[in-house]
Design a protein around this nucleic acid. Structure first.
Lengths: 152, 152
DNA sequence: ATCCTTGCAAAGCATTTGCAGTCAC
DNA sequence: GTGACTGCAAATGCTTTGCAAGGAT
């Protein structure tokens, strides 16, 4: 059946090799953590967490590793207007809901209809469209309380 | 028929007054420029351009004015992972296409079907959804050349 | 007259970079 | 052995902030 950690490592090795880059403990730990969580962590959160696997790792290396993973197509970078970027270990096409209060980002199970996307693409005259990004915004269960951010 | 500049100024005055803020030449110039362009300028671009109307204006004031406009609902802030935020004077719900090469952002005429959005909202369990953001990415006519960013 | 805004300069923060030592291949 | 990677610290670039002077109501 294949060991999960072994698979993950093999995926990383293959992707790195394909672009002439080297497999390192640091990159591996960052990749493993990203794959293991659905929390869309910031670089700093990855740093804090990965320190338990690779004690001496530096924040700069975490940034570099994340950038490498994004470059290999093994992770995605999510940017909102709220301070730091977040990273997503899921590489399949999917959407997110984001809480405007606490900033948490959650995966959506559904996907926007491809026909709709094509229709919009057709109106993007002159552009060669290569991607779509869709994001819902609102308030998560924990933040949607009478005391915080009451509806208009 | 209504004078366009007068209308724009009245809109701003009303919105500012509603939130206890004051009408100033600087805010007016920033708002006027944002309304007059479809280029989704960065704060710095707004600054450079608005200097011809208000010679002594500072970059800090441009940032503050933009923030004020966003707060009043008279502008929107667009954030991508590429350096600086961009500002949009259109406040109606619409989508964008963004060039991955040069960073230009263009308005899309169409809108994603509301039923599709509701379907996705339904899958965002626990969240109270208040907004959608959809963005196409790709290469604009000027950047989509054989020499730059050849397809895979 | 009140107190919101401005402009300036300094601070803040996330991210990137230069470089010497180290490690993967 | 070679060239890529790491860790450190300094640098960068966008944005925000503190404060005194100026301006809107």
């Amino acid at each position: 059946m294949g060991d999960h950690n072994t698979d993950t490592e093999a995926i990383l090795r293959r992707a790195l090799e394909a672009s002439g880059q080297r497999f390192t403990e640091q990159r591996s730990a960052v990749f493993r953590f990203l794959r293991s969580t659905e929390s869309h962590p910031t670089a700093d959160e990855v740093f804090l967490r990965v320190r338990s696997d690779v004690p001496g790792i530096s924040l700069a290396t975490v940034y570099k590793s994340l950038e490498t993973l994004v470059g290999c197509g093994l992770a995605a970078k999510l940017t909102y207007g709220d301070g730091s970027a977040r990273y997503d270990g899921r590489t399949d096409d999917h959407h997110h809901v984001r809480c405007l209060e606490c900033g948490s980002v959650v995966d959506l199970p559904g996907r926007v209809d491809a026909h709709e996307v094509h229709r919009l693409e057709a109106s993007a005259e002159g552009f060669r469209v290569t991607g779509v990004r869709l994001e819902l915004t609102g308030y998560c269960p924990g933040c949607d309380t009478p005391t915080s951010a009451a509806p208009a």
